[in-house]
């Protein structure tokens, strides 16, 4: 690791020094291509974020890809219903590594206002690993931009070696998650137990 002071001193002299990790993460954190994948109301705010006023392209993410094969980021924008959940997981599985998930809005986080619904999945984290949650119903486009910046910081901070390295550099970890099936009453299984556990109950004293 190069000393920060020395690096700044060298920069004044016109010498630019960086590490492979920084360069690599700088590159990939500034061109996160989202999947153009809208589920419900939040998708409209996602679209608004990509339009002239909020201009997501300032952050290198204006290239919404219709195909999961070309996308890095899945923005789960809206309510995930039980009927849609298998498709969402399948889309995630089809995305190449490295891939990230933003759960946008209350519905994607927990079911939100529709939580009591019989056909509503109570949060996409039951099936997918979520990197960033954005609260709001719907979150404003600025909130999406903030989430994107947070994700970029997360990517920039990932070490390329060691046990903390990202999944795409670690052959032992799979980036595919089991797709739930339609059962007679509910999805089977209703959640991915390896990913998500219900909150522990605390009895008020």
């Amino acid at each position: 690791m190069i000393d920060e002071g020395l690096k700044n001193e060298l920069a004044k002299q016109g010498v630019f020094v960086t590490s492979v990790q920084e360069l690599y993460n700088w590159g990939r954190s500034n061109s996160v291509w989202p999947l153009s994948f809208g589920l419900a109301c939040c998708a409209i705010e996602m679209m608004a974020a990509s339009m002239a006023r909020f201009d997501i392209s300032r952050f290198g993410s204006e290239v919404f890809r219709p195909s999961p094969r070309q996308a890095d980021l899945m923005i789960v924008a809206g309510t995930v219903t039980k009927k849609m959940a298998p498709q969402v997981v399948r889309l995630y599985n089809q995305m190449p590594e490295p891939k990230y998930v933003i759960a946008m809005g209350a519905c994607a986080i927990s079911g939100g206002p529709f939580k009591q619904g019989y056909n509503v999945l109570k949060g996409i984290d039951r099936f997918l690993p979520v990197d960033i949650h954005i609260p709001g119903c719907p979150p404003r486009p600025e909130a999406l931009l903030h989430a994107l910046i947070t994700l970029q910081e997360k990517i920039a901070g990932q070490p390329l070696t060691g046990p903390e390295r990202p999944r795409h550099l670690n052959a032992a970890v799979s980036g595919e998650y089991p797709v739930p099936e339609f059962g007679p009453h509910d999805l089977q299984p209703p959640r991915n137990d390896g990913l998500w556990k219900p909150l522990p109950l605390v009895r008020p004293t």
């Binding site: 009591q116 109570k122 949060g123 007679p184 209703p190 219900p198 109950l201 008020p204």
Partner: peptide
């Protein structure tokens, strides 16, 4: 979906117990 067996808008429909309760 096609394999679904219940009729959810009936008053006596019992929804699947997948509700996550508040921690307290």
């Amino acid at each position: 979906w096609d394999g679904f067996v219940d009729f959810p808008m009936r008053k006596d429909y019992v929804e699947p117990d997948d509700y996550e309760y508040e921690p307290t």
